[in-house]
Nucleic acid binder design. Structure first.
Lengths: 332, 332
DNA sequence: TATCGTTGTGCAAACGATTACACAAAGCAT
DNA sequence: ATGCTTTGTGTAATCGTTTGCACAACGATA
């Protein structure tokens, strides 16, 4: 309680103070173990007095269970990832699981970091980055079945995963925009190399194909507002598209600003702009974005459900697919 | 390498395979320890072959150093915190420190969570939440000197901390707005109980006082867009203010939208709106917010500097203060 | 009263590394 | 050839828990 003593008291020391063995101390802290309730109460009282808490590191070593979860993400700064992380972290904490955050800029240190985290014997791994190959994940976390949250076609079917299907939603959105008279579409990708991005593009391309249309122009950004803005300017200067489908919401906002500010084009009359993700900001009055939206709550519930099944010993692999639905705003 | 074998190999097993003792295995993995370079190379080769990595949990138990850092935050969803976290996490990872994220909605489980994290023997604690009392932090992490990133007047001077001073910047902003002819100011707080919020308000109140002015109206939100929007509507209905200073940028954007959409008031002609934080989004073309901005990079550099001094054994306490500067946008 | 669960506790062996200490081998000067 | 340092390796204790096993005490049953 005093808060100023430097060293942490150990179970052996507490045992001496309470006149019991360290085994009994341990039992006092595990809810269902044979111990007299009087003894337990006395121990807990003494423990509180001396500020004793069992050392989770030592316990993990003995248990072979760390209750740590590695979260591999690309960027916390991206609002979509931030929203999802927040939901997930709360759910994990409610289950007494602690998240270790791995946030990786480039590819080389991503693997390095994953290796580092694996030495901490994490119980679960949630990979939000589709830049990580499944094989790398499985190799690095060989004792922990990772959960892949991405859309890469699974060549290794032994890994639990959560996938998203936006084909139907993209269809609805394209139908609406074509119905509004737009014919000349562009796709503004988030990255050049990601599977997610290719898949998302395909949803819309397929929907366009059903109207006998195809993307007339392409551009590549990096999921940031600035890249959305810049690429949209270039795109609109070099081709006369009247609709831009963007790889995520943030780029869509950038593209909308570029169209309005640099070219004086307004949504949805002059140009239709569509985002993807369904972040909270998309619904703000100043944005009111039409976007192919994911139910982030259901998404993270799915992640937690897979984790719980893994904890229960049923290592699957489990596979869950969630559908995306349109959010109708005033940009398309 | 095979990636499918369930159990992790131990140093003792690897020792047998390499024909050495487990002590030698350990030495092969610590850069500066007495070991023949031929032996080391052989061990590392065998280790790679069998996918051996030293167990960080066991090492931590022995070392008394976990290389884990607890990050206590209010909400990842808040863009300001997200941006800072991202910067900090990168800096920690570059130093082979792993962040454990504690994200706390309400006060009771905040302490609970901090206690849980403390059982993992974290080497450092960074507290971003001014909802945590310093005394609680010190009590819970009694073996680890926490770093408090907040503005609460330090009654306990034994804790390293990083503070922010926006008095001068707020002065500049108020001077400008008053110079533009505005006289009737409102303050839209982020929370009712936080020290940060009170201090931020005081910067602006003091600046107003120098012009013989004071806040005519007050409102309380929760740092969210929706609360900014809602409170601004109520505020503008019940009083005829022509300037609103907001507790953060997100609320300022909400307030701006409310003024424009619900009351048809434009910035900066009809009403001046000011944010605080200086998040990236404030500079987006659609927002172009005038805000009292913090240099997040310098901020997180400061946090890391304190951590490094603590690691070097100089536990301070260290205290760093950073100044906020105005970002001039079109909202004020 | 003898027997048999049941309950509560202690002993000691894990868990997987690190590291102080001891010691053999080797290099080098006398 | 002797003594001294340096280098490389092994032995064993340690970090702080948990848990299987043994056992004493106790109440209930026959």
């Amino acid at each position: 309680m005093s808060g100023t003593n430097r060293r942490r008291i150990t179970s052996k020391e507490l045992a001496k103070l309470a006149g019991v063995s360290s085994a009994t101390i341990s039992r006092a802290f595990s809810p269902d173990s044979r111990i007299g309730s009087a003894t337990r109460d006395r121990i807990l009282a003494v423990a509180r007095e001396y500020g004793y808490q069992p050392n989770a590191i030592a316990r993990s070593l003995n248990n072979q269970r760390s209750r740590l979860v590695a979260l591999v993400v690309n960027a916390i700064g991206n609002p979509c990832e931030a929203e999802e992380q927040q939901l997930l972290v709360h759910r994990l904490q409610a289950r007494q699981l602690l998240p270790i955050l791995l946030c990786c800029a480039d590819h080389s240190d991503r693997l390095q970091l994953m290796r580092l985290a694996s030495t901490y014997q994490v119980d679960h791994v949630v990979i939000f980055s589709d830049m990580v190959s499944m094989q790398d994940a499985v190799d690095i976390f060989h004792t922990t079945k990772p959960i892949i949250v991405s859309f890469e076609p699974l060549e290794n079917e032994d890994v639990s995963n959560i996938r998203i299907d936006g084909a139907a939603g993209a269809g609805e959105i394209i139908d609406k925009i074509v119905g509004d008279g737009k014919r000349r579409f562009a796709y503004l990708s988030g990255t050049k190399s990601s599977w997610i991005d290719k898949l998302r593009r395909k949803w819309f391309a397929d929907a366009l194909a059903r109207h006998g249309l195809a993307f007339e122009a392409e551009a590549f950004g990096d999921y940031s507002y600035d890249s959305g803005f810049k690429e949209a300017v270039l795109l609109l200067h070099r081709s006369k598209v009247d609709a831009i489908i963007c790889g995520n919401d943030v780029m869509a906002i950038g593209a909308r600003d570029a169209a309005r500010r640099v070219l004086g084009k307004n949504t949805p009359e002059d140009i239709a702009i569509v985002g993807q993700d369904g972040i909270a900001m998309a619904a703000w009055d100043c944005n009111d974005l039409t976007t192919l939206s994911l139910d982030h709550v259901a998404f993270m519930d799915a992640v937690v459900e897979v984790i719980e099944r893994h904890e229960a010993g049923d290592e699957g692999p489990h596979s869950i697919t969630l559908a995306c639905t349109p959010r109708w705003g005033s940009t398309a």
